[in-house]
Write a protein that binds this DNA or RNA. Structure first.
Lengths: 346, 346
DNA sequence: ACGGGCCCGGCAAGAAGTTGCCATATGTTG
DNA sequence: CAACATATGGCAACTTCTTGCCGGGCCCGT
């Protein structure tokens, strides 16, 4: 005669169902429920089916926290980037996320705003929750990285830290591609616009550029360092105009784009007066006018390779600490490079 | 006489210390250690200090999983975006992340690749681990969103779902700004380049544009829908050239940029032949040539406001479901708009 | 017919914390 | 000095799930 007691919104604290609730409803023990979900085959097929049905009716979902506690597997990976809004990281993030998702892992993305303090704090916070770490463009010192790498499997990107697995692009072939392309267009004097001094990649690019240019004869000169941003690019543009060369290779695309802007803003033409090449092929390189010729890094692949290796290590593989994993580069030709001396207007 | 037994790398499985280890080393009970960390004041200051020192020496860190289990507080928030590489989301992500970090929360960022299936899966996966959810540009249906919102506090961005708190930009004033700017330059016929039909924002922008144009006299026409991408923009460019107006307002910056490219590629001039305006002021709007005039949304603020509200709700505040939280817009003037009929060349 | 294996379900001990309640010591008040 | 309040630490139960081990039932080979 009294109405329904268990309405939908009564004030009783309705906690989500647990395996105990399911067990009771299905007439089995909690451990059987647990096994029905996490150890298929261990329990009789019919029983399992019944349990699954009951669980579904009750709206049961496993509690990942409780599950992780005993087994020490959180199925989470940390991806730490210096700046999530730097287009350089886009496809790295995607690649990492896809690879992780495919393996049933979730990635915890943290943006450290180029601050090594924030980076350490973020690590502090997330490290205990994740099984492994991918460090993209870390601003921390090698030794700090090594210490952290002791606590969890780790892969660093675009940087080589001895003792820690890393993924880098094939800078050497990239540099050669850039030089060859420019020489093919008749240029024989290049300016390399350097990025941050602390950058491992910058050092390598400069070295390989010189290497690639050596036997061939052309001269490369270096200006900088400049911050790897649009602003750094305009700064570099001013420096370049003081002592021009017909071809310029920038540390990265952002710098190249800023530089082009400065040049164009002062009445110079690209590529007629200056051929410019960048590195990385970030989103935006195709947006600018003229489109930027650039040495493309397979960003997506870097991300997925890193996660792939991390997962392998988690599954017992030996970390690859000797030599970095190298991914290939390719040259994307757009409109910012052209033949030396071409001058359709004059 | 035997050497050190506990070297640094001996094969014994060295598990991270727990409160039990600390308790033993400090000569207190585990509960006291627990309280020393989670309930300051509950234990004697000296004892607490001693415990803290011992813990530090042992390298103890609390295990967030174990901590969350009993109290049901994971200190994590989910931020689900349709596309993490869409510049529109950059500052939203930053704002959200900053606000969360400031409150001691970690954000779990998920990119759903514009797929409502992936979105549901991601939610499935992360929802049990987080205390609240921010949905940016969800591709799910209103009803699915409402169902999900029942399970955890949620805020949706740039969309109004009745019954769920939301943060939106002040579209009405934004539209008026665009129209006024263009009229101030002498334009009196506008084309609105529509975005995806399913987009709530698109509908509103179009409505408010018409509204803003009404009394004033100028005519607005609409073409589209187009996908909100660069490609959509070139498509729109073709459509526009068939039936031109001197001024065009695009659903968003990406569309506007693609459109400008198409126009310029066909010998038209911007802003001399076409004035174009976008929405959102994404990264890239200042990169293109000419720089894109746009109705800026305070993206960062949207992100932080959303998280702020979420945290408030978690702390007991009533969710703001009646009216959306509105953030203001502003007009960023760049080079893509100019006076009607200006023609310095001809 | 009986010992030896499977199959399958259950028991109970963790995993690393939190917290309600109790016990003791100390301080305070009348 | 008794009675009571407060500060501080400990005990043990609790969060949800996993898993090693045990044992009953059943089938098989001999």
């Amino acid at each position: 005669m009294s109405g329904e007691v268990c309405g939908n919104d009564d004030p009783v604290e309705r906690r989500p169902p647990t395996i105990y609730d399911v067990a009771e409803a299905a007439g089995v023990s909690p451990s059987t429920v647990s096994r029905a979900f996490s150890r298929p085959g261990r329990v009789n097929a019919e029983t399992a089916e019944r349990i699954r049905r009951v669980a579904h009716d009750l709206g049961y979902r496993v509690n990942p926290l409780a599950r992780s506690l005993p087994v020490e597997r959180t199925s989470m990976l940390a991806l730490v980037v210096a700046d999530a809004t730097n287009p350089f990281h886009f496809d790295i993030i995607r690649g990492a996320q896809d690879a992780a998702t495919k393996a049933g892992y979730t990635v915890l993305l943290t943006d450290t705003r180029e601050s090594d303090l924030l980076e350490r704090q973020a690590l502090e916070r997330t490290l205990p929750m994740v099984e492994g770490i991918v460090l993209a463009s870390s601003r921390m010192s090698d030794s700090t990285i090594r210490v952290t790498a002791k606590q969890r499997p780790m892969v660093v990107l675009n940087r080589v830290v001895t003792g820690v697995p890393s993924v880098v692009t094939d800078i050497s072939s990239g540099a050669r591609r850039a030089i060859d392309h420019l020489r093919g267009l008749g240029h024989d004097r290049f300016t390399y616009v350097a990025g941050p001094e602390a950058s491992w990649t910058d050092g390598m690019r400069w070295r390989e550029l010189r290497e690639a240019a050596r036997g061939a004869g052309p001269k490369v000169r270096r200006i900088g360092p400049f911050p790897p941003t649009l602003e750094g690019g305009v700064e570099a543009g001013r420096a370049l105009r003081r002592e021009p060369t017909s071809a310029v290779i920038a540390y990265n695309d952002l710098l190249a784009i800023g530089l082009m802007g400065e040049l164009l803003g002062h009445g110079h033409r690209v590529p007629e007066d200056f051929s410019v090449i960048g590195f990385d092929d970030i989103f935006g390189a195709q947006l600018v006018t003229p489109g930027l010729t650039t040495v493309a890094a397979p960003l997506y692949q870097i991300g997925s390779t890193a996660v792939g290796h991390l997962l392998a290590v988690l599954n017992g593989a030996r970390p690859q600490t000797e030599t970095p994993l190298v991914v290939p580069t390719s040259l994307i030709r757009r409109r910012s490079t052209g033949p030396h001396g071409a001058d359709p207007v004059a």
